[in-house]
Nucleic acid binder design. Structure first.
Lengths: 336, 336
DNA sequence: CACGCGAATGTTAACGTTAACATTCGCCGT
DNA sequence: ACGGCGAATGTTAACGTTAACATTCGCGTG
């Protein structure tokens, strides 16, 4: 069935049926109290009769705003944390009765300019760009001045507000935690080398160690899976001085722990291990993995705020949202 | 800064600056080829100068359609499979250059009528309702006739298209698989009793067993976690006749497997185990869990199709999307 | 009973765009 | 030079809503 113009009843139709002016019908539609109860009834009846649906287009044409924020994404929502950020965003939007307009970009058109161009013709009052890694035009992109724009990115941008999880803070917290427990030989086990998250975690780890004058050992890298962690764990068994391992995600941490235990070492008594993402709660029997949990919900919520209330200043803000270290049972005092 | 009416340049402004009519400006904006190249240049320059942004409101007011589908959700996107369904939906939308308008409902207003009422005043040509479990007004809900509506639900609805994963099919596939491998004593281990997914999986399992005249043993229930699975696994050790276990999710399956192994049984040689959701790939070292994987992406994509091309017939369709059984290494031929 | 006054309702215009139709322009052939 | 013709551009009206202003209604008062 058609949904073009002329389909569906307009306020004028309702008004005619109820024998009032369109303005009165409009007042009823908007819950104004300046309408006599019997008139209101007549109008409501007419609306029901015609199954009237207000025209968003006409309303926002008059109002000049949409009460909606755009979100451009590329890649999959599966990526760790992503769904929570989306959730934080929609939750914040809900609170303020905003809708979210979601635009998915194919990977081959996943750049900021294209996303922005597409979003500009949609009913949004602001936009959030959340593309994979670092889009090719990150440096050259200029946000449209008619549309407040926020990029979810760890890097900061000359003209555009940016926000993301604090990857460096993650490394710093973890190293601090280990140090507080008396550890001095703290290894890092990365995920895929090319991954941005991985790179910044490794950098943060190295910095934190150097700042304390601790020994930096060239890290090993897995592919984010538990099996790759297991292999690496088997090699770490020979690294006698190591007492603490910082794994770049939880699966690798789990793999390492299983390997160490299979080799006769005790976790955490002999070696402490910590993961990142806190993604495996309830999934591994009898294993309570200490992990660093990002505050993805907060990232989403703040992105929403930035998009709806763009800060006035000259320099665009660059916000890093800290997470929390969740202490469970895989970190202990360093052995003597 | 304001974004009300009067903010931002309109086609009229562009036209004035470029010394053409608004119609010509409109033609340029829409890429019509009936414009002389030099004129086009002038107009484009004016657009850039004024950082013109087309008014979605005005366009769709004329066009009478929005090229967008609404999605109402309540609860969290974290729930297994949900994000994939959303992803399938947005992917399908992308292919057809549709946007998705996302509306999150607070849990206390999560009913179909409220969702539909809110969505009706947003810029959408159709809506998909994806609320938790079974909303209170499921039976009484009448979809607005001005807005094609699809409900993601395992139950079917008298006036409204519905679609969901085929929970029964999941049980049937799993039982079939076990039977083919020669198993006859097939236990079911559920998650939380009240969960709808759990109930329908259990029902399907029982039906499938009865149809074959197989022995039905009252199932045990965990709370979806691996630890609860472990406990149950320890009890199942004493169930000498049992050779196959159908766990209602992967975490429980993993817990069971660990318990059985700790008790000296071999999986799959002595007992076969299968999970549901296929959610733990790469997460458990040296464990390749056979599992049933729902086709969530397809559910999302079909929901989109139903919303954009509502079928004409009298009876609304009720679509169950089958998944696939992923054979890995936790199911073997039944022991003699 | 006319007057006044606030409450209820009506009228007009405008938001920005584009389809449909109307006009003008530039150029070719004779 | 002139008619003719297609290409380029312009004019008008309409999409549905609501703010602002205008009018009418009903009722109590002097």
């Amino acid at each position: 069935m058609a949904h073009g113009p002329g389909t569906g009843a307009s306020l004028a139709d309702v008004a005619k049926l109820a024998k009032v002016s369109t303005q009165t019908a409009s007042r009823v539609a908007n819950g104004s109290d300046a309408v006599r109860p019997d008139t209101r009834e007549r109008v409501l009846a007419a609306m029901a009769e015609l199954s009237y649906r207000p025209s968003f287009a006409a309303r926002s044409l008059r109002a000049g705003s949409y009460h909606s924020i755009g979100l451009s994404m590329s890649g999959n929502m599966e990526a760790t944390g992503r769904r929570f950020q989306v959730e934080g965003l929609t939750a914040a939007a809900t609170r303020r009765r905003y809708a979210i307009t979601l635009l998915q970009l194919d990977d081959d058109e996943a750049n900021l300019s294209e996303a922005s161009r597409r979003m500009a013709s949609l009913p949004v009052d602001g936009q959030i760009l959340y593309l994979g890694a670092t889009p090719p035009d990150f440096a050259t992109f200029e946000p449209p001045q008619a549309l407040p724009t926020v990029i979810i990115s760890t890097q900061h941008h000359p003209y555009c507000a940016t926000i993301s999880n604090d990857q460096t803070g993650c490394s710093v917290s973890i190293v601090n935690h280990f140090v507080q427990k008396g550890h001095r030989e703290i290894r890092f086990v990365g995920g895929r080398r090319e991954s941005f998250a991985n790179v910044s975690r490794q950098k943060g780890w190295e910095q934190a160690l150097r700042m304390r004058g601790l020994h930096v050992v060239e890290p090993m890298h897995g592919d984010w899976t538990a099996d790759s962690g297991y292999e690496i764990g088997m090699q770490l068994v020979n690294d006698k001085s190591c007492t603490a391992i910082y794994a770049s995600n939880d699966a690798i941490a789990v793999g390492i722990i299983y390997a160490l235990r299979d080799a006769g070492l005790r976790v955490p008594q002999d070696i402490s291990v910590i993961g990142v993402d806190d993604s495996l709660v309830g999934v591994i029997p009898h294993l309570e993995l200490s992990s660093y949990r990002f505050n993805d919900t907060q990232v989403g919520a703040l992105a929403f705020d930035l998009a709806t209330n763009p800060p006035e200043g000259k320099k665009p803000p660059h916000i890093l949202v800290p997470g929390t270290l969740v202490e469970r049972s895989t970190v202990a005092q360093a052995p003597r």
